Simulated scan of single mutants.
Amino acid sequence: MRFYECTFIIRQDLPAQDVHKLSEKYKGVVEKTGGQVIKKEYWGLRSLAYEIKKNKKGHYIFFGLKATPETITKVENDFKISEDVIKFLTIRVDRIDEKPSLMMQTPSETEK
């Protein structure tokens, strides 16, 4: 199995409760196909750099995954057919860092 970092953006008009349900759904897809979600972070409702599908903001979700390429293909296909996911990016990495990502750290932690 390989390590991946997957970030996806969910449209702005969904309430936070539905966003968390969607992230649990995708976590379930990963686990059902033999993968493992090592790290999960909700980065909040953030402004997009440019408008995507008439959305100016989006809910950002980050997963650190240990999975096979087939699992990643299945998850990305689910992202593509979902009307709620407006953008996603999955990259392969050497390892998943257990510390919070830069998006989750406070400004005092990043200055160290």
Rank of each mutant, 00 (worst) to 15 (best):
T33I: 05
A67E: 03
E111P: 06
M1E: 13
H59D: 14
E5A: 12
R11C: 11
M1L: 13
E98W: 05
Y26S: 12
W43S: 04
L22P: 05
L14M: 14
Y4R: 04
L45E: 07
T110K: 12
I38L: 15
K57I: 03
V37T: 07
G35Q: 03
T90V: 15
L14T: 14
E76P: 08
V29T: 09
R46Q: 07
E76S: 09
S82L: 12
S82G: 14
E41C: 05
G64R: 01
K57R: 14
F63G: 03
G35Y: 00
E83Q: 14
L22S: 10
Q105W: 05
N77E: 15
A67I: 02
Y26Q: 11
E51G: 04
W43I: 04
E83P: 03
P100I: 13
R46M: 02
Y60C: 05
I86W: 03
S23E: 08
I61W: 01
R2V: 03
M103W: 02
E24Y: 00
L22G: 02
E76V: 07
F79Y: 14
L45I: 00
P15Q: 11
H20E: 15
T7R: 01
E5F: 10
T68N: 08
K21M: 09
S23H: 03
P100Q: 11
I91R: 12
K57N: 08
K66E: 13
